[in-house]
Design a binder for these strands. Structure first.
Lengths: 114, 114
DNA sequence: CCGCATCCGAGTGGATACTG
DNA sequence: CAGTATCCACTCGGATGCGG
């Protein structure tokens, strides 16, 4: 990527902020990966992520549904079961996550590995 | 990026988290861009970013210096002046930011633009 | 099983004033 | 100018209990 020009900066900020809001929290990527791994139910997801409380999971799942990263389906019956699935759209985040991952790997080497 | 395998997931999480810790806050990218734009001094940077308080700026700059994204140079004299500059290393973040930006742009279109 | 409501403590961040 | 100190409002998130 070449040097950013000043007039480009402002227009870049909002979309960057949007993306960070959507995946930038402490849990969202973990939850997404948990679902990618095959976990479908609330308790399953909760148990797969240490230290994640029901309150936070609940609100994160809502955000993610609003952003179309997952779908939520209630299966009638008793007890009620709910199924969370990742959308095809969520797959488009993989290149973003890959970029974050690569930079983070490299950074570890730079900061720690001497 | 192809589908992630399960055993890859865990190894991906830490570096992703590292990167988000470094650029994921509310201000770090704004500050970096402000410095890229040419702002060098504490007050200059502060004034260029609405709503940013001195306390937060101060602590963000320290983090960023620790992560080698910027350098801090005190220029003797009175009053004291300090010069912040972005490092060559910080430029490596541009591809990450570009990826965040592209995804965010696309997402806006998907969510809002119908 | 799903997941919201409530209570509550700790940490964050803003405003302001002050030192070097 | 650079940055710290202090005070304080507010949010976040953990624990727990309950209703559907």
């Amino acid at each position: 990527m070449k040097k950013m020009e000043h007039h480009e900066c402002i227009s870049k900020l909002l979309p960057v902020r949007d993306t960070l809001d959507i995946i930038g929290g402490k849990w969202k990527i973990l939850i997404l990966i948990s679902i990618w791994e095959g976990n479908k139910h609330f308790r399953e997801i909760e148990r797969s992520i240490p230290k994640l409380s029901t309150k936070v999971l609940s609100s994160e799942l809502k955000d993610m549904e609003a952003n179309q990263l997952i779908t939520r389906t209630v299966i009638n019956g008793f007890p009620v079961r709910t199924e969370y699935k990742s959308t095809a759209y969520s797959e488009t985040l993989k290149s973003v996550i890959a970029e974050l991952h690569d930079w983070g790997m490299n950074h570890r080497k730079k900061i720690l590995g001497k």
